[in-house]
């Protein structure tokens, strides 16, 4: 089934992008490629309604995305941004604080450890995030958002701070997890091989624009 369809969408506040007819299918893994400034991140922000298009239409399950309650939508369509943010606190408390902001109960410690393992971040729960490296922080950040159990997971350059082997393992795990749980995965990556190895579909914004 078609999850998102994007018709002639323009967003020209920051980048001049013209998306003609992009369709994204449910329960599949879609990679988005394109050079810097081609509007990859902007596209993901349009999909979780944290930005509104100036022209054109973004449909989610055949309904204009702006007709949804945007807070519930973002809980269902969750974007993991390129800019990693963690509180200067332990991993456990980071989960707790993010869930507080969502007004939800945090998962159990066992569950948290599973999500961390899935994201190649095998740290103890009382590790302070302040002392982690860029790549380690990135993986903890992804694991928090994965634990929200969204229907659609949008990842903006999730492997930018990781080496090739870790990148491959992380994306492999994420894809497997999403397939098993009926989730849709949409990933921005500038890494062509990574995209070719793991995607069901690739959207190349250089060609679409």
């Amino acid at each position: 089934m078609e999850l998102f369809s994007i018709h002639n969408v323009q967003f020209k506040n920051i980048v001049n992008v013209n998306y003609n007819q992009i369709k994204i299918e449910e329960c599949k893994t879609t990679f988005i490629c394109g050079k810097s400034g081609s509007g990859k991140s902007t596209l993901l922000k349009l999909l979780n309604a944290s930005l509104s298009a100036d022209h054109g239409e973004v449909l989610f399950r055949n309904k204009p995305i702006m007709d949804y309650d945007t807070i519930s939508l973002r809980k269902e369509v969750t974007l993991v941004s390129q800019n990693v943010f963690l509180f200067d606190d332990t991993i456990k408390n980071n989960f707790v604080r993010f869930y507080d902001y969502r007004e939800e109960k945090p998962p159990s410690e066992v569950e948290i450890l599973e999500y961390l393992k899935l994201c190649m971040a095998n740290f103890s729960l009382d590790t302070n995030c302040k002392g982690l490296s860029g790549g380690e922080r990135q993986r903890v950040f992804v694991s928090i958002f994965l634990s929200f159990k969204p229907k659609v997971l949008l990842l903006d350059e999730p492997t930018s701070a990781l080496d090739e082997a870790t990148s491959n393992a992380l994306v492999h795990n994420l894809k497997e997890h999403c397939m098993k749980n009926g989730m849709t995965l949409i990933v921005i990556s500038h890494d062509k091989t990574l995209a070719e190895n793991h995607s069901d579909t690739i959207i190349d914004l250089n060609l679409e624009a």
């Binding site: 979780n48 944290s50 807070i71 519930s72 973002r74 809980k75 969750t78 974007l79 993991v80 941004s81 800019n83 990693v84 943010f85 993010f98 902001y101 969502r102 007004e103 950040f141 928090i144 958002f145 929200f148």
Partner: peptide
């Protein structure tokens, strides 16, 4: 704290709580 605001908005927090 732009990164914090962006991350929390994407996590589904309300602007008020952020």
């Amino acid at each position: 704290q732009k990164a914090q605001i962006e991350a929390l908005m994407n996590a589904g927090a309300t602007p008020k709580s952020i």
